[in-house]
Design a protein around this nucleic acid. Structure first.
Length: 486
RNA sequence: GCAGGUGUAGUGUAGUCUGGUCUAGCACGAGAGCCUUCCAAGCUUUCAACCCGGGUCCAAAUCCCGGCACCUGCACCA
């Protein structure tokens, strides 16, 4: 079993995530987060959100349902519903445009009916096997809402970004007219994936954390760069390089300050939630894979088993001008007595992909075959578990009391008195709980407990008072213990 | 969406080819209890499954058809 399969098995068994609606046979492209998954996902979101609040970013929350006019302007209506053909013999699928060009026609057909008529009146052949194609179909990547209650058509959003763009003026007023300005939105997006696969990696309903950084077009500047860590870059023209982000910008590998800045920031966020340095890279998209709205894009990719998977996309885009043209609403901001329409650098985070990647990068099997999730403290569902060594001599009662008191400081603390102590350690290791607090005979005598660290399984003795006073993660005794392990 | 493969308790599997003691076995797990003074120990006990729907047959987990889901490859992934 590869790491992916082992993580899927553990995720279902322990309650991180599993396929949705399975008692009705399942529905492909949808996954539920279970009890631990919700906690983990929330922690990922929290890390992302706090990173951007600390950056001076502001947030907004807009509807998932969006009128067609918005997506007409953004280009999604046109670019997201392709007319396509399928060869009746070899089942090769192509865009209608491609097979028509091959047949020597530059006509642009707008509907299925038009396309069908054309294919029946003309001889268009499969580019692979030469069989005649007579039918076209529309492949829609946005979900359209069938029953309209408004005057126009409504869609489920495929990205949260437009909700920010259409509110640009209001947001910038709240931001007191300044540039640059970063706005973040967390929410669900919906994409009609033709063949969803790989659990959380390709869902029809996904959690996105998108940030729109509005910058002055000529400069595309956010903040001065500091060197930062060595990062692996795969530029579109040229070989892979390992460099810090400042150097990469100065050498021209990355085209703008803001792009460079947010690549580095993204790297730091991914690392902070538990992705491994060596298994992260930034790959620049080739011109033919760029989205319709973007002129340059760097993907943060995570190495999962043997393939690189896009986890974050950082795009250079320019939507404000389009909305200004479409609505007549000014999208310009006064900068040094000039009116400028900002450019946008957009780091778009796939929250679900981040969650799966961090589980896979954290997954580890001990020599004895037991599984451990080496999750960073900040994303682990539980910070600690309280365990009475045995259930007699009043230890269990004492443990419950301690648990109650710690809960007042930190609700993310688990209690378990069932089974042998070894089994309980193993249970916690498997869900990534960083610390186990065990009460033993000495607890009764000296009011001390042992703290066991997950990755080393080493223990230290600390006082109960310390736990009751400081909780777990900010406990000076536990911090000291942790430092002694490194 | 196409082609191929797979589908048995919460998980991993035996059984399917060759239909019949399968009243579906095993292990892990989970619950209750006992025991237990630090890394999935042991004992007692309980829980829990043939993906869904048709068909063939005296008889279907097993054979056939359809659907659904998953896996792999191709295509798609703004």
């Amino acid at each position: 079993m590869n790491v992916y399969e082992q993580v899927i098995e553990l995720a279902k068994r322990r309650g991180f995530f599993w396929p949705s609606y399975s008692i009705y046979g399942g529905e492909s492209g949808f996954y539920d987060y279970g009890p631990l998954g919700v906690m983990l996902k929330d922690n990922v979101i929290k890390a992302w959100k706090e990173a951007y609040i600390a950056e001076g970013g502001i947030m907004i929350d807009t509807p998932v349902i969006v009128p067609e006019s918005v997506f007409r302007t953004s280009g999604h209506i046109e670019k997201f519903s392709d007319l396509a053909t399928e060869c009746p013999k070899c089942h090769n699928r192509e865009k209608l445009e491609t097979v028509m060009k091959a047949a020597g026609s530059d006509l642009v057909l707008k509907s299925e009916d038009e396309a069908d008529k054309f294919l029946q009146d003309n001889t268009v052949k499969c580019v692979k096997c030469g069989t005649r194609i007579t039918k076209a179909f529309e492949s829609k990547q946005m979900f359209k809402i069938p029953e309209q209650v408004s005057s126009g058509n409504l869609y489920l959003r495929p990205e949260t970004a437009q909700g920010i763009f259409v509110n640009f003026k209001l947001l910038n007023t709240v931001f007191r007219g300044k540039l640059p300005m970063a706005v973040a939105q967390l929410g669900k997006g919906f994409r009609n994936e033709i063949s969803p696969r790989q659990s959380l990696l390709r869902m029809k309903e996904l959690n996105m954390g998108e940030v729109e950084v509005f910058v002055i077009p000529e400069k595309k500047f956010w903040k001065d760069l500091s060197p930062g860590e060595q990062i692996k870059f795969a530029p579109k023209n040229g070989p892979e390089v390992v460099s810090d982000v400042k150097n990469a910008f100065e050498k021209g590998i990355i085209s703008s300050n803001a792009m460079a800045y947010f690549i580095n920031k993204t790297y730091n966020i991914l690392k902070s939630i538990g992705l491994h340095h060596g298994n992260i890279r930034f790959r620049q998209q080739h011109d033919d894979e760029l989205a319709h709205y973007s002129v340059d894009s760097w993907d943060a990719e995570a190495l999962l088993d043997d393939s690189w998977v896009e986890v974050v996309g950082i795009a250079d885009r320019n939507d404000l001008k389009k909305h200004q043209d479409a609505t007549g609403e000014s999208m310009s901001v006064k900068v040094d007595d000039r009116d400028v329409i900002p450019s946008i650098i957009e780091p778009a985070y796939g929250i679900d992909r981040m969650a799966l990647s961090l589980l896979m990068h954290s997954f580890y099997t001990r020599e004895n075959g037991f599984k451990v999730l080496r999750l960073p403290e900040r994303v682990a569902p539980y910070h600690a578990a309280i365990l009475p060594l045995v259930n007699k001599d009043g230890l269990d009662g004492l443990a419950r009391e301690l648990h109650e008191k710690i809960l007042e400081l930190d609700p993310y603390v688990y209690f378990d008195q069932s089974g042998s102590i070894g089994k309980r350690y193993a249970r916690q290791d498997e869900i990534g709980t960083p610390y186990c607090i065990t009460l033993d005979q000495d607890t009764i005598k000296e009011k001390t407990v042992t703290v066991r660290e997950r990755d080393t399984t080493k223990q230290a003795r600390i006082s109960m008072d310390s736990l009751v006073e400081h909780g777990i993660l900010t406990n000076p005794d536990i911090r000291k213990f942790r430092e002694s392990l490194q």
